[in-house]
Computed example of a mutant assay.
Amino acid sequence: MSELSYMDKLLDGVEVEWKLLEEVGKFQRGKRFVKKDMISEGFPCIHYGEMYTHYDIWANTSKSFVDKDLAYKLRVAECGDVVIVAAGETIEDIGRGTAWLGESSVVIHDACFSYKSPLNPKYVSYFLRTKMFQDQIKPYISSGKISAINAKGLGKAKIPIPPLNVQAEIVRILDTFTELTAELTAELTARQQQYAYYRDELLTFEEGVVEWKTLGDIAENLDSKRKPISSSLREPGDIPYYGASGIVDYVKDYIFDGDYLLVSEDGANLVARSTPIAFSISGKNWVNNHAHVLKFETYAERKYVEYFLNSIDLTPYISGAAQPKLNQKNLNSIKIPNPSLEEKERIVSILDKFDTLTTSLTEGLPREIELRQQQYEYYRDLLLSFPKPEVVAHD
């Protein structure tokens, strides 16, 4: 049975009405409090900035709290209300909603609204994530340094209103998808922690067990062959053009052809480490002067050094405060434990398996999570795509 025929059977001939959000429920804006007001325990609160990272479809506990005396001066969302973000750095931030299902009320920031209605709050929360809702509120969002929307603008969006039992069934189906994604995400986190543990164990050697060599003695540095090209002079093509953190463009020609290890030479990521500062590349490529180019004799030696560099603190080798830089001299001076090739192969074999599981976008957990997210979004939009009533034209 298809999803649509299943929903038709569930509706049993009942026509789904579309109504403005302002017709179905009531919006209430929160009151301002600042991050210094937030404490580790007290009265539950939700700051709008937390909505992007901590809350999804629903929540029954808060991540932050405020003093109870302050809470009485602020505004709250009650159990069954939907907390909706009304301000953010981009238009895409606006309208995200979370059903509050906690036993007590929760204080909400003035960049949020609470929405109280007789509708299933999780059904509303799922609807707020659809493109059809986002498209409806876009004309009412004011843009500038901060994008924002008021209650009147939110209220102009229309929502399909099937019977409550149908709302509950839609929520049940979509919860199944989000729970599976959550389980996979938790599994990925556990595997990442396991990977970090084994990586550190495998790359830690007791003093005197192995010799240590400088990176300059282990790798051949090909920095002198790099050629930066300004964006205006690059001829478009299908050859990857690499910078400090990865591919920045595609060009027509190449200067390297083979297997290499690139290491970030400059940029904030040398300190932040939000992405790996050492990464392997293969095939034809062009590299600018923001990444060092290292060549090794074997795959195992290259990957071993890649794993090691990404595991250690490079601060002692980095110069510059405003613009961090890992120059060639300092890069070459980094000391690397140098076990036998057989041991390197063993270490790399283990870490490669973890790396595939935790980072691969083609066969690892991230790919599985992406597919489940796409599946969830497909069914969410399908299940919430009730036909709108035809508008009768008048002369």
Score class of each variant (00 low, 15 high):
L233M: 10
E17A: 13
E235A: 09
D8V: 06
H290W: 13
K31V: 03
L20C: 08
N60I: 04
S274H: 09
Q194K: 03
E201Y: 12
R346Q: 08
P339G: 02
V14T: 15
I170H: 06
G267D: 11
Y250H: 15
Y376C: 02
A157T: 03
L314K: 02
A111F: 02
P324N: 08
V16N: 06
F205V: 07
E265R: 07
V166A: 07
H292M: 11
P324H: 11
Y48H: 08
S104D: 15
D110C: 10
D259K: 15
E297Q: 14
I318T: 10
L164N: 06
K131P: 01
I161K: 02
F205S: 05
S143L: 01
E377A: 15
I159L: 05
I149W: 01
F133Q: 00
G243V: 08
E342G: 01
F279T: 03
S340I: 11
I94E: 01
N332D: 15
T130D: 09
L188F: 05
A244M: 12
S2H: 11
E50A: 14
Q192I: 03
S311T: 12
E265S: 03
Y379V: 09
Q194F: 05
A71M: 04
P44K: 02
V348G: 00
T90Q: 00
K35N: 13
E345N: 09
R191D: 00
F127K: 01
G208F: 04
Y115D: 01
S264W: 00
N338E: 04
L262M: 13
Y299F: 15
K36G: 12
L154G: 02
S147T: 10
K19T: 11
D249P: 08
N327Y: 11
L4S: 15
I39W: 07
L188K: 00
K26R: 13
Q136M: 10
T359S: 15
A196L: 09
R302C: 11
P387Y: 13
P324Q: 08
T90K: 11
E297P: 00
E342S: 14
V209F: 01
A157I: 03
E297K: 14
L74M: 10
T90W: 00
Y376K: 01
R29N: 06
V171H: 02
R273A: 10
Y6N: 12
Q323R: 13
Y254L: 04
C79A: 10
K252C: 05
S114P: 04
R29T: 07
K73L: 11
P387E: 13
D56I: 00
E78R: 12
D352L: 10
F33G: 02
K158W: 00
G97Q: 08
I146V: 15
A268P: 04
K63E: 14
P337H: 06
A71Q: 02
G208H: 05
D352P: 09
T178L: 07
C79Y: 02
K31E: 04
I146F: 07
Q373I: 05
Q374A: 13
I247K: 12
F127N: 00
T181M: 05
R346I: 07
K325H: 12
L270I: 08
F296T: 12
E201K: 14
P160H: 07
Y126V: 01
K145T: 13
V34A: 13
R273D: 11
K227G: 01
